[in-house]
């Protein structure tokens, strides 16, 4: 009864004869050898997330930009001694922080398949669900960033009023804390699924998401109205964040290989992620920033170009990474390989 289709060994001994099974018997060599890559007529074993990569990716980008801008704006406000140094950065931060609560929330509701029930997200709070965690983080952030934004508008209209300054001073603290949350919980959102590419490297993916958020905020905060010393400091921060992101990107790729699903890194979305987000979005701007420093005289133009590239690269990364994961879920040879006993958490193996 040996069938060629399933490979000789697999057909004779699908599992140990006692009904012993992957997970209990440990990762014996026989278990690993046994799966010869069979699939059920090549049908998908998982269902990809029914998200729109560009809509949800756009939200993830805006959440990172707004959240990290609020954080960096608050840090600038608290550390800069001269008011002139910090005023323009905090002003930009207050306005950038309004993007996630407004456009970002709208994107999230738009991606629901029954959007008129969006408020059901507020029925429960669950620590097992990053989407629930994110709902409450975004709500908290929206309240704090909204207060800061109103205060900033008031300041811009009537600079001599004192109360908006006090509101902004107080609101920036919760905005920074919630901002740190919405900058990075989106990594948990993708990693806490069964989608192979998202789930294979939760920690390194979180580093990628977090550093990408900081990078975009550092790039967008360094507008032309900001003083040039401050712009240089933000460019330094951008370079550091890009460095962290490049390292984490490398680690994610290594861990996908380690999980036996390295093949997933060569699909359509994976190439977009590699070239657009990785090449033009992190490596090139990092090279420009390093180059402008090596030249001795730092060029504001190079720094600015690097900022544009990093911002566009971050958006491309969020979109492509979502598509990359969904692609991997549709490929049974990837998902069935990912769900082999050698990929179980060490303690539970």
């Amino acid at each position: 009864m040996t069938s060629d289709r399933f490979g000789g060994d697999a057909a004779r001994h699908p599992l140990a004869p006692t009904g012993q099974v992957p997970g209990t018997a440990g990762r014996s060599g026989a278990m690993r050898r046994d799966w010869a890559g069979e699939t059920d007529y090549g049908r998908a074993q998982l269902k990809p997330a029914p998200f729109s990569p560009s809509v949800v990716g756009g939200y993830v980008f805006l959440a990172g930009l707004s959240g990290s801008s609020a954080l960096i704006g608050a840090l600038a406000d608290l550390t800069q001694k001269r008011p002139g140094e910090r005023r323009d950065v905090t002003r930009r931060a207050h306005y950038l922080a309004l993007l996630a609560p407004t456009i970002g929330s709208a994107l999230l509701v738009y991606d629901l398949h029954t959007p008129q029930r969006f408020y059901n997200m507020m029925r429960v709070a669950k620590k097992t669900s990053p989407m629930s965690i994110g709902t409450w983080l975004l709500l908290g952030f929206s309240a704090a960033a909204g207060a800061g934004g109103v205060a900033q508008i008031a300041t811009d209209l009537e600079p001599h009023w004192r109360w908006p300054h006090r509101i902004a001073k107080v609101a920036q603290v919760p905005a920074a804390l919630f901002g740190a949350g919405i900058s990075t919980y989106t990594a948990a959102l993708v990693s806490a699924t069964s989608t192979p590419v998202w789930a294979a490297a939760p920690r390194a993916t979180a580093v990628r998401f977090a550093s990408s958020s900081i990078a975009t905020a550092a790039a967008v905060l360094a507008g032309s109205s900001v003083s040039s010393p401050m712009r240089r400091k933000l460019a330094d921060l951008l370079l550091a964040a890009l460095g962290v992101e490049i390292a984490a990107t490398y680690v994610v790729a290594k861990q996908l290989d380690g999980a036996g699903i390295g093949k997933a890194r060569f699909g359509r979305w994976a190439w977009i992620e590699r070239i657009v987000a990785g090449g033009f979005g992190t490596l090139l701007p990092a090279a420009l920033l390093v180059g402008s420093r090596l030249l001795g005289r730092r060029s504001a133009k190079l720094d600015r170009t690097a900022g544009y590239l990093a911002t566009a690269g971050s958006l491309a990364f969020r979109i492509a990474f979502l598509g990359h994961g969904m692609e991997s879920a549709s490929r049974p040879e990837i998902s069935l390989r990912f769900a082999q006993p050698d990929n179980l958490p060490t303690a539970k193996r």
Partner: peptide, 15 residues
């Protein structure tokens, strides 16, 4: 899947 996992176990390490 031979060895599926519990997705929520990845929330804490990621966060």
């Amino acid at each position: 899947p031979a060895a599926p996992t519990r997705a929520s176990n990845r929330v804490r390490p990621s966060l």
